[in-house]
């Protein structure tokens, strides 16, 4: 192969020498959005199977998720370069734009979580709500109860859409070679479910809830391992652009943080801890959920950063 020397006369901020337009705000938004998606999926799926929330942590999870998604949207807002025009997202629906889908899905998240949360409250909380807010609260609680099953299915659907969207926001960008994979959608959804379960496991749950959540956490992590494998094999077995992108995680610049933080610390160690705790019949520690949260954020931060550095212009 001939040696090539390229003198590139462009130095646009944020673009050169490599694209670096998305900093911590986007991984933070994807992490919080994924976690909220996971909370919606977990809490709705568990109740649809017949298990109503018992602990206060489970009952308040949908309301906590409202706070988390607001934090995520705050991070997204900070990333906007033309902040005063943020309302423009809601004057158009562009079916070909994943970001447009995301903007509208985020609007559905709020009512879904609020109604789901109301219907999951116990008698004590309902009494307090009715005393504080009067007949309006009673009416809202009645509506939440009357339409409980459709609300839970809607929450599940919105949660899956939100989780998949956080991955497809990146996965549908052909110009960034590392991101251009359909596996990112389900991968980020599985990771979101896993981080949501980890967050719940850090809170006081009933024994039944803890046992069920821990099982779901392990299932989500195993799914994540499989999807991560599909993502990497898909890139590594592709053409020159895909192989070049895969190199970032398989020998290149991001290899060490990816394998250390995402695979070893965020997946392998929590899975091993869970297996050891189950085998030795020891009570679960808080270390495994903490590591899952670190791994979930690292996955998004590394994929966002490495993807921006993989472009056609940088191909050998």
């Amino acid at each position: 192969m001939q040696p090539v020397e390229i003198d590139f006369g462009r130095h646009n901020p944020g673009v050169d020498p490599q694209l670096h337009i998305w900093g911590w705000e986007i991984p933070a938004y994807l992490f919080l959005g994924g976690m909220v998606a996971g909370l919606m999926v977990l809490t709705a799926a568990v109740e649809l199977r017949g298990d109503r929330p018992r602990s206060w942590a489970m009952q308040l999870a949908p309301f906590g998720a409202l706070g988390l998604i607001s934090l995520g949207m705050g991070a997204l807002f900070l990333d906007l370069a033309h902040k005063l025009y943020v309302w423009r997202f809601y004057l158009a629906f562009r079916p070909a734009s994943p970001m447009s889908w995301g903007a509208w899905i985020l609007l559905l998240v709020y009512p879904a979580l609020a109604i789901q949360g109301l219907g999951g409250l116990d008698a004590t909380a309902r009494g307090w709500l009715t005393r504080t807010f009067g007949a309006r609260a009673g009416w809202a609680l009645g509506q939440a109860d009357e339409h409980r099953t459709p609300v839970l299915w809607a929450t599940l659907a919105v949660g899956v859409s939100l989780g998949v969207y956080t991955g497809l926001l990146l996965g549908t960008v052909p110009a960034r070679l590392l991101w251009n994979s359909a596996a990112l959608g389900p991968l980020f959804l599985a990771s979101g479910v896993s981080t949501a379960a980890a967050l719940l496991l850090l809170l006081p749950l009933t024994d039944d809830e803890r046992h069920r959540t821990a099982k779901l956490d392990v299932a989500a992590m195993l799914a994540e391992v499989v999807l991560l494998g599909i993502f990497l094999v898909g890139l590594a077995s592709g053409g020159t652009p895909q192989r070049s992108a895969a190199h970032a995680l398989l020998g290149g610049e991001y290899t060490a943080p990816f394998w250390a933080l995402v695979v070893l610390l965020g997946l392998a160690t929590p899975l091993a801890l869970n297996a050891a705790e189950s085998w030795l019949r020891r009570p679960a520690t808080r270390l495994a959920p903490l590591l899952v949260l670190i791994g979930g954020y690292s996955l998004r931060a590394i994929v966002v950063a490495a993807g921006q550095h993989s472009s056609f212009a940088l191909l050998p």
């Binding site: 944020g14 673009v15 694209l19 998305w22 370069a81 025009y85 994943p98 052909p174 110009a175 212009a313």
Partner: peptide, 22 residues
């Protein structure tokens, strides 16, 4: 334009930039 930069990540030529006005 909200300055979301989705177009910049989508451009295979990196031909776009954010102006100082956002």
């Amino acid at each position: 334009c909200t300055g979301c930069k989705a177009c910049m990540s989508a451009c295979p030529y990196d031909a776009r930039y954010v102006t100082p006005d956002g």
